[in-house]
């Protein structure tokens, strides 16, 4: 059964890879500059922040949780970073380190509410989703923006380093760390166990609360990092930074094959999910389509990708039903298909 789940997941990832490649070739054929190096770098620049959020959303969803507050936290951290640099007079590096600390504290708040008060993650992070954004707006009174960052800082978001966008190496590092964490350590093993069965994990002696706390604190830290990169990319920090990013991140994770119920999923799947969304939204601009189409198509892609494993079974079931009608006297084969559908739905 594990092999089945694994191969099923691998199949899902293969389909997604094909989708990304198909997107690439299609947009390359309709948009003149789509395939250029500059545009590729543009795609990377624009997807790093959501990509970072999606990376840390993966272990959270693996534990059966969710974090709706990451987008708001990105906004809050961007503001606080600007505040620390402009008003407290810290250097961008020091301000950045402080911001990451603040992100960890904010993630810790989520973790505390979830593990100590035993509140569902959806409720807790729905609360902090409003709280963090509200704080950001209160601090700036809704109007204050931070601009005029030094070029040495903007380098991080706008220039090239080692021939690629400067934020790309950071993203790659975070991706490697999260991948190792999820796939090669006992932490990742624990996340899955908790996602499948929190009680079962507890009875196995796993430190369930500490592991849950870990994924939310990690999300806080990386959200802060994303906030800094976001600020460097746009050259300004506003209270509405990262609005709606949490949903993009969740979409990418689920598109990548991670089960929203926890336990099943991979980090590379998430990366493919991010790529599929990023290429699509960039490509549509090159295909001269309005922005709204991107959202629509992303939704369609999500639904298709998630039902891709079910569609062949539905066809099989229809075929079986037709056969039954034709050979009304042969009751042997008819029930097979729905049965298979049932049994594999439980995986």
């Amino acid at each position: 059964m594990k092999n089945f789940v694994r191969s099923n997941l691998a199949k899902h990832e293969a389909i997604l890879l094909v989708v990304v490649i198909a997107e690439w070739f299609y947009f390359n054929s309709v948009g003149a500059h789509f395939g250029s190096l500059d545009n590729t770098f543009d795609i990377v620049r624009h997807s790093v922040e959501i990509g970072l959020l999606a990376l840390v959303m993966t272990p959270i969803i693996l534990t059966g949780g969710i974090d709706l507050s990451v987008g708001s936290l990105l906004g809050l951290c961007a503001i606080l970073f600007g505040k620390l640099w402009r008003d407290a007079g810290l250097s961008p590096a020091t301000a950045g380190i402080c911001t990451v600390g603040i992100g960890a504290v904010a993630g810790g708040l989520n973790a505390t509410l979830i593990t100590w008060l035993r509140l569902p993650p959806l409720i807790v992070t729905l609360g902090t989703y409003s709280l963090f954004r509200g704080l950001a707006e209160a601090i700036t009174r809704g109007v204050d923006t931070f601009t005029g960052f030094p070029a040495s800082f903007l380098f991080l978001g706008q220039e090239r380093f080692l021939g690629m966008p400067a934020q790309a190496p950071i993203f790659v590092c975070v991706a490697i760390v999260v991948w190792l964490l999820v796939h090669r350590t006992t932490f990742g093993r624990s996340f899955r166990a908790i996602g499948f069965s929190p009680d079962g994990a507890r009875y196995a002696g796993l430190p369930v609360d500490r592991r849950i706390a870990m994924v939310y604190v990690l999300a806080g830290i990386v959200s802060a990092l994303a906030a800094i990169i976001y600020t460097a990319r746009l050259g300004q920090a506003k209270a509405d930074a990262g609005t709606g990013y949490e949903l993009y991140a969740i979409t990418a994770v689920v598109l990548g094959g991670t089960s929203i119920f926890g336990g099943i999923g991979t980090v590379h799947g998430t990366l493919l999910g991010v790529a599929a969304i990023a290429v699509l939204s960039n490509g549509l601009v090159h295909a001269r389509q309005p922005r709204e189409v991107a959202g629509m198509l992303t939704g369609l892609l999500l639904i298709l990708a998630l039902s891709s494993s079910v569609i062949p079974k539905i066809f099989a079931r229809l075929r079986a039903r037709r056969q039954t009608r034709r050979h009304d006297k042969a009751p042997n084969s008819k029930i097979q298909a729905p049965e298979k559908l049932q049994s594999s739905n439980t995986d």
Partner: peptide, 29 residues
């Protein structure tokens, strides 16, 4: 089924679940 094992995980993963620290020093699988 609820507490004794984690049904959706492998026999091997279940068998080692309470000895992570001993079998996997430094948390590496």
């Amino acid at each position: 089924r609820r507490h004794g094992v984690i049904l959706e995980m492998s026999v091997a993963a279940n068998a080692t679940m309470s000895v992570h620290r001993r079998i996997f020093p430094g948390a590496w699988l």
